[in-house]
Design a protein around this nucleic acid. Structure first.
Lengths: 254, 254
DNA sequence: CCAAAAGTGTTCATGGTACACCCATGG
DNA sequence: CCATGGGTGTACCATGAACACTTTTGG
């Protein structure tokens, strides 16, 4: 056995048995406030399957990877086609490829994404196009049984989100351009599912150097709260050596 | 455009344009001590390409994903076929799929692995089989130009390794069953590329609860050092909800 | 004026870092 | 006995948690 050369390259001639069905799916979170409730929750859009494997069950938005299509572009495209949404943050989550996760073998490159509060309404129930059939928002914490291994996938995406919110600034991916510290804190509290001390939270985030105070204030029921912007000179998330590729795809926005 | 159903499932009939060449590659690190040098370095095995795309260049060990083969099994298999090595730790790194990374489009599921010092000699230059042509060890810090985007991939694997060594116990994946604290510290110093205070390192790692002191001592030039074993009840790495799958595949060992 | 959220100050525990010091062995 | 690495003790500093307190608005 000395075929030491079948490496990652493509050698025309090996062909058939190396061909695999490759799909791209996206777990896309946004934040939903509930009047009355003391905590906002994470929600994600799902698509109801209308075909054979797991027909009728809800599944992550996604589709097949086109031949000459970048993978993150495929994630954006299939997400737009199925839900009309365009995320503010998109990152590869994991490649799921267990042979028994679908009747015939499918490798799914799964992305996870964040949708800013002001973007969440677009598409899905936009005033222009009528709300889509077979698409609906679900609370991330209380999902029904999903198609394929999609419950596991969402679980993993939630775990990744909770982890990453600790050491990077992705929380901003869920907020509009300007926000109060209370709103930012609400994001953290939702993701981590626990209360944070307002005083300590303020200092920590102020000292991180990622916030720029504006002149504006959010006026409401009580003392007005200063509005902040996100300092774009600091990277949103630490992607390591992959940052170039990822951020270039992130800059593309509708 | 209402094909909202082409999700991750496999719908026999869509077929051809969803088929993609899928390869599996592995970045596998081990530690090399150099007599004279004050620091050990990370090394990885590469395979020289003997075929068309990038013929003559060195590349990561890997191969095509078989139809009914789990992805991590494919990583183990192709690694064994090309280098004869069997890692003590294996984890998915990233899926690389840029359309221009190879003459024809290839999606590479890349794994990264750690080889214990006592395993590194096996296979590659084992006394049983003669040392393999077209396989060689390289210092991870000073690689030549590799085939495809493999330089980027190694860079990313190094970044992940450096990160992960901070919050998990993967460093043990580079050591034999029993080791001294100095040896463990050497691993950390090599990965992080900086000196660590022996006294503080001892306390930190002792308080982490991951080490079990044995009765043995490593006798050498100076005061004998106690040997420790790794506490297998603590997970080697925090993989989140994927831990089950990953650890079950990790338990398979030659 | 009062409730409630914005924002400030202070204290305490914890964990990392720096470094002085003693212990045990081979040569 | 001495150089060298194994191993212990301790002081210091940064960070985060807990919480008392002041400020500013709407009603």
């Amino acid at each position: 056995m000395t075929q030491t050369t079948l490496s990652p390259g493509s050698s025309p001639g090996i062909a058939v048995d190396a061909l695999t069905r490759v799909a791209v799916s996206t777990v896309i979170f946004t934040l939903r406030r509930h009047r009355g409730a003391d905590r906002a929750t994470l929600a994600l859009p799902l698509v109801r399957r209308t075909r054979d494997p797991h027909e009728g069950l809800w599944a992550l938005p996604g589709g097949w990877l086109d031949d000459a299509e970048e993978m993150d572009a495929a994630a954006s495209r299939t997400l737009a086609e199925t839900t009309g949404l365009a995320p503010s943050y998109l990152e590869q989550l994991y490649a799921f490829g267990a042979v028994d996760r679908s009747p015939t073998r499918v490798v799914s490159i799964v992305y996870w994404a964040l949708l800013r509060a002001d973007e969440a309404s677009t598409g899905l129930a936009s005033p222009i196009e009528e709300p889509r059939e077979n698409v609906a928002w679900f609370d991330a914490a209380t999902l029904p049984r999903l198609a394929f291994d999609h419950n596991d996938i969402v679980e993993y995406a939630l775990w990744r989100l909770r982890n990453k919110v600790g050491y990077s600034r992705i929380a901003h991916g869920l907020l509009a351009d300007e926000f109060t510290l209370a709103e930012l804190r609400e994001v953290y509290e939702s993701i981590l599912d626990r209360r944070l001390d307002p005083a300590n939270f303020r200092r920590q985030v102020e000292n991180s150097g990622t916030l720029i105070p504006t002149d504006g204030f959010r006026t409401g029921n009580h003392r007005p709260a200063r509005l902040y912007r996100y300092n774009r000179e600091v990277e949103l998330a630490d992607l390591g050596p992959l940052a170039d590729r990822a951020s270039s795809s992130r800059k593309r926005r509708p």
